[in-house]
Design a binder for these strands. Structure first.
Length: 643
RNA sequence: GGUCCCGUAGCUCAAGGGAUAGAGCAACUGCCUUCUAAGCAGUCGGUUACAGGUUCGAAUCCUGUCGGGAUCACCA
């Protein structure tokens, strides 16, 4: 099957249009940016005599070249206030000094009003982070979101593309959960059709009763091997057929000018398979028997699929993903016909002379699409309509997210538009989380060329790399704990590598270089956590009191940077949820870890010059560790105890 | 050909319309007798594909051009 990952969207369904949650912008209380926005808006409003929307006031962290912590951008208001930027800044700055309890000083550079905050603000911020259980998690909204991801075929093992799909789907689910939604995770398993019949037939003919157990193979690989074997045998049959007089005659009769025999037969293969191949005929026969419910065929089908599921479960367990419900194409492939009937009655669909049913989306920039064949059987989109409604009936989710590669953008655009015209109640909440294919440096992965990167192989390789690096470092721990640490590091590296790039981007994976463990990586972030973990253990051992922290008054820039980063976390989660984009969380965690590594290097923590500085830095470290752990948890990355 | 997506350092990627476009990798150079060097710091590397436009301000928004990809099945 040409498309391993059966599913797809369009950006025309923008978040804003489809997401009612967008209106709720929860931020934790006393947020400094919200407060500054309001104060600045009020100050400008007073100056120019008309009300200003606080959300239009842009507040940024001050760039390092200037003195200050946060900067209000005043350019947009100079015309309104009819003052020079500097004068406007001075008036707003003075008012902030007067009216607020937290602004210590200000300075103006062009239209930028740089604000320096008083020390007590930083202490309060730190205490709030520490005192908020699940800091960064948002209140429950009582709204349900269903996320579909993975969507495997049962004729072969999972590959690199599925890994990206699973990691995106999982992290997106975690992020939506943290943003306050009730998330249902599902997969649709493509368990029927020609592909699995090929594996079945090959096993029947050549398997000689072998099983995954007798061969010592994972079930999905075992079944996949028969799929490959089928393709090999077919190729052999085709090669032999090409030598026959019948084939030669066809070539002479139908060749295009200048077309070589090789090119001709390459093009002719599908037709040959359908019209001449003995194996092709047998597969079609098997599929017919499956559809007729032949008991032997169904028994074989169940047997082979159960082998595959065992294998999938093992891979999912390695990836740390799971599902609340599985949907099977064998259950859903006949669905949607009643919807077609409704659509005809509503006049959304129309019937052609041959009896096939269509929808005309040309006014929306799409084509006419068939939704039911002339013989009354379903097509892909019919099933998807049926499945969508089934899910809505199962869970009542107003929003459903499909994590599917971008090659299916058109399909999902059409599906969503169709459901909208049918007036389905969840239609506005449909979203296709469309991600770019993972490519190799040589281009797209191709089954036929044997360039598919297998998921299990990939995981094994990264594990091996992490093990090797741990050995080189002369790890201080051994046994099961060491192995668990290595597993977390390896998977952390793999997951961060896949998630940190924007979903929509195609990404290139170079198996030669594998996955880095240094630099901008998962282990880099884990390492900063491990450092803190070590400090905390020591603090506990030595019974260090942390209550003196508030006595510390002259904060270092490195400390403020960390606190500013901590403040951002809840809004990062929200943005990631709104945009269905886990890469925001990944890049945030990296920034936070980077800031911490710098502080670690620049400033003594345990050996700080005074007990209150030590207490403050330990508390700050704890807040960073807590936030890093929470952020990585959203990506499915666990922390090793030691590195 | 129509539609959609993408084009940022040699490579892999960041950057809510905001100040001098940032990281990592690769190459070179420093830093372990102080909390773990899977770390830190430095050097090198950019006309953000190109041309216009909008704006106080554009990698970001608009138009066009060029380049890459996907898709345009009564396949799933």
């Amino acid at each position: 099957m040409a498309h391993e990952q059966l599913r797809r969207s369009s950006r025309r369904l923008t978040y804003r249009a489809s997401c009612p949650g967008n209106a709720i912008t929860f931020a934790h209380m006393n947020d400094i940016v919200l407060a500054l926005q309001q104060e600045v808006a009020a100050a400008i409003a007073q100056l120019c005599g008309q009300s200003i929307d606080p959300s239009k006031v842009q507040i940024n962290p001050t760039v390092s070249e200037f003195k200050g912590d946060y900067t209000a951008v005043l350019f947009p208001f100079v015309k309104l206030a009819q003052k020079a930027p500097e004068a406007l800044g001075a008036e707003v700055g003075e008012r902030l000094l007067r009216e607020t309890t937290y602004v210590k000083s200000y300075n103006i550079a062009k239209g930028f009003l740089n604000l320096e905050l008083k020390e007590h603000f930083w202490h309060e911020l730190l205490q709030e982070v520490l005192a908020t259980p699940g800091y960064g998690r948002h209140p429950r909204r009582g709204e349900c979101v269903l996320v579909e991801y993975s969507s495997p075929n049962t004729n072969k093992p999972l590959h690199l593309g599925h890994v990206r799909n699973c990691l995106l789907g999982w992290s997106c689910s975690q992020i939506l959960d943290a943003a306050g939604y009730d998330v249902i995770k599902v997969q649709i398993i493509n368990d029927r059709g020609v592909a699995i019949c090929k594996s079945m037939l090959a096993w029947q003919k050549f398997g000689q009763g072998r099983t995954p157990q007798t061969e010592g193979l994972k079930g999905d690989h075992f079944v996949g091997d028969y799929y490959v074997l089928f393709e090999q045998k077919t190729q052999e049959e085709y090669a032999a057929w090409q030598q026959t007089p019948e084939a030669q005659a066809l070539y002479e009769a139908h060749r295009k000018p200048e077309q070589s025999q090789k090119e001709f037969f390459k093009e002719y293969k599908n037709r040959w398979f359908n019209e001449h191949s003995r194996l092709g005929a047998e597969v079609r026969d098997l599929l017919l028997r499956w559809e007729a419910g032949d008991p032997d065929t169904l028994a074989l089908w169940r047997q082979m699929n159960s082998w595959v599921y065992e294998g999938f479960e093992a891979t999912y367990a390695q990836l740390g993903v799971c599902f609340d419900k599985n949907y099977y194409e064998s259950d859903t492939y006949l669905l949607g016909k009643n919807i077609v009937e409704e659509g005809l009655q509503k006049g959304v669909f129309f019937k052609k002379a041959d009896g096939s049913v269509w929808i005309d989306l040309s006014d929306a920039g799409y084509d006419q699409k068939v939704v039911l064949r002339a013989d009354g059987t379903s097509v892909y989109i019919t099933q998807d309509m049926g499945t969508a409604r089934m899910r809505y009936e199962d869970f009542g989710c107003q929003r459903m997210v499909y994590v599917v590669a971008d090659e299916q953008n058109y399909h999902f655009a059409v599906l969503f538009e169709t459901l909208r015209r049918l007036g389905e109640p969840y239609a506005e909440g449909l979203y296709h989380l469309s991600y770019g294919l993972v490519e190799l440096p040589t281009g797209r992965m191709k089954t036929r060329e044997g360039t598919v990167v297998d998921a299990d192989d990939l995981i094994a390789e990264v594990l091996q790399l992490a093990r090797q690096q741990a050995a080189e470092r002369g790890s201080s721990i051994e046994g099961p704990e060491a192995e668990e640490n290595i597993r977390r590091i390896a998977m952390g590296a793999l997951k961060f590598f896949m998630i940190r790039v924007h979903p929509k981007r195609r990404m290139v994976f170079n198996p030669e270089e594998s996955v880095d463990l240094q630099g901008q990586t998962g282990p880099y972030i884990q390492y900063s956590w491990v450092r803190i973990h070590g400090l905390m253990q020591r603090a506990e051992r030595e019974g260090i009191q942390l209550s003196a922290a508030a006595q510390y008054t002259s904060l270092e820039p490195q400390e403020k940077e960390l606190l500013k980063a901590l403040r951002e976390y809840p809004s990062v989660v929200l943005t990631a949820a709104q945009e269905y984009d886990p890469s925001h969380v990944a890049n945030y965690a990296y920034q936070l870890a980077k800031n911490y590594h710098r502080l670690w290097h620049d400033l003594p923590i345990f050996n700080a010059p005074s007990p209150e500085v030590r207490a403050f830095r330990l508390q700050l470290s704890r807040a960073v560790a807590q936030t890093l752990e929470a952020a990585l948890h959203l990506l499915g990355i666990e922390m090793p105890q030691r590195m």
